[in-house]
Design a protein around this nucleic acid. Structure first.
Lengths: 145, 145
DNA sequence: AATTTGATTTAGAATAATTCTAAACTAGGT
DNA sequence: ACCTAGTTTAGAATTATTCTAAATCAAATT
């Protein structure tokens, strides 16, 4: 059908079921687009890529599908500096690096438990359920363009 | 004149001079608004507050002044989750906490050098000039509303 | 297999924050 | 006092995203 592997298809319908939502071809295709090219695409980029696999899909549906995938926990939104929201299917705790030259966003692996440990700087009255760490700067030449 | 203290007025005109920009009443007033109530106001909130001190100011000018203050290093933009940009005159390294209940943003002091140390998780080819750390969650009751 | 029903998709309109435009004004040097 | 480039201003334009309401569809039930 679409390019979703059996294992991802299963993860998707489980997650959708689990949150009381339906499996649809549009959701499968959008999810497959995110899994196939993990470069933090914007909704617009997801739309273009999805349209090449499913020409009838609409922008509104892409937004709806992305929101659904976020709500059922399979995808995370990445927001950098008021730029258009990007979407990331990497669920492991990680930081982001935003290149000032290309605008690209890279996942940065972090030591196990580090993200959680960061929350220890919070005074007692704060309780954090999400921790975001974003670096901005430049890449030395040689790195994947 | 406006409510800028002499010391802040000096810092402002120095910073403006230093970046080749002019001191204007609008810039002074916007700066004083940011210094007087450090609750991370949005441009719209800055506009309302500034208008009460200088009724003739326009929204476009508020945006211009904020951009100028950012460009000369006196103010930092704080972006949380695609919400309207907020403005923060706290230049010391610090993290932010975003309350899911009220939407308020709080400065979180961090141990000296911590923000810089975080960049050590970056592989060698990345060089960061800015590090952002944002927590989201809830405040236990009792904390300043 | 047909029916039903609420969820989903869709095109296009609406919204909201921000940026742009170009004309009027002004800070600060001469 | 005069110039001139920088600044302010109102309103239009832009852009990402959300909303609307009608058509379609997934999947539970018969």
């Amino acid at each position: 059908m679409n390019s979703l592997k059996q294992i991802d298809r299963g993860a998707l319908s489980d997650a959708l079921d689990h949150s009381g939502q339906r499996t649809t071809p549009q959701r499968e295709t959008v999810f497959s687009v995110l899994l196939d090219e993990r470069d933090h695409p914007t909704a617009d980029e997801v739309y273009t890529r999805t349209k090449s696999r499913m020409p009838s899909i609409s922008m509104a549906t892409v937004y709806n599908c992305l929101e659904t995938l976020v709500s059922c926990g399979l995808v995370k939104q990445v927001n950098i500096e008021r730029e258009p929201t990007r979407y990331c299917p990497n669920l492991a705790p990680h930081a982001h690096f935003h290149c000032r030259d290309t605008g690209r966003v890279y996942d940065v692996p972090v030591p196990a438990g580090m993200m959680k440990d960061l929350a220890k700087v919070l005074p007692g009255e704060y309780s954090a359920d999400s921790v975001e760490l974003v670096f901005r700067g430049h890449l030395s030449k040689g790195k994947k363009q």
